[in-house]
């Protein structure tokens, strides 16, 4: 696949299971090597060896929290690994928790939180390094519809505020249309990009957009495109 992503874009990778959208995201993140091809970061700094200094945050499908550590320590982790002490990191950790509305839960343990709250902690952990690029791998797939909607709105609000570049993997047509400025539709066997859809609805988006004719038109268009991604012989 070939894909260029501009700064400040919110790009969704939409496709059926097995089309390689998560793999693409992992390669962008630098987890595992691509068989061929490369990822270029024209606007990011390079270190002495010419390697890219990736300023990225990654949110996994599951919250992926350390169950033995408090919320604070979980969010502190990326900074801790970079050698920043607890006291030096405190302000930034609390700021990240503030962004996702969980400042009151810093001392709680993950098991004491609901599924949506765990996901918020996971997002706070991705934000604590103040990344320029946020990579999200079906982060809300396991959540119920109401929580998911709330987190979608929160994500859009934070995106408008901080202007990161977001790459968001999803298999939900509705979610992709609601969130992104551009939808990249992928097809399996072999994994490839088959369509790109620009969603030029203005931000902030909310209930009005979700119920508008443009929104249903966009979802219809994306669904059709996704449908053509599935060959007649595909059994899901």
């Amino acid at each position: 696949m070939t894909l260029s992503i501009g700064e400040g874009e919110f790009v969704s990778l939409l496709g059926p299971s097995g089309c390689g959208k998560s793999t693409a995201l992992r390669i962008i993140a630098g987890l595992g090597d691509a068989t061929t091809g490369r990822v270029e970061w024209p606007t990011m700094g390079h270190d002495a060896e010419g390697k890219v200094e990736r300023e990225i945050g990654f949110v996994f499908q599951e919250p992926t929290l350390m169950p033995w550590a408090s919320v604070f320590k979980n969010v502190w982790l990326p900074l801790r690994l970079a050698g920043i002490s607890k006291s030096a990191a405190r302000a930034r950790v609390m700021e990240a928790l503030e962004m996702v509305g969980l400042s009151a839960f810093a001392d709680s343990y993950p098991r004491e939180l609901s599924g949506g709250m765990k996901m918020r902690v996971s997002i706070a952990r991705a934000l604590v390094t103040r990344p320029r690029v946020l990579l999200m791998d079906e982060p809300f797939a396991a959540l119920d519809e109401i929580t998911r909607q709330k987190l979608n709105d929160d994500l859009l609000r934070l995106w408008a505020q901080f202007g990161w570049t977001v790459v968001f993997v999803t298999h939900s047509v509705f979610e992709s249309v609601y969130l992104s400025t551009r939808i990249v539709v992928m097809a399996p066997r072999p994994g490839r990009v088959i369509d790109e859809i620009l969603v030029d609805a203005p931000s902030p988006r909310g209930l009005a957009f979700r119920t508008s004719p443009e929104y249903s038109e966009m979802t219809r268009r994306a669904s059709q495109s996704l449908h053509s991604a599935l060959g007649a012989n595909d059994h899901l």
Partner: peptide, 8 residues
Amino acid sequence: NLFELYGA
């Protein structure tokens, strides 16, 4: 993966 990502 997370630890690898943050260069642990």
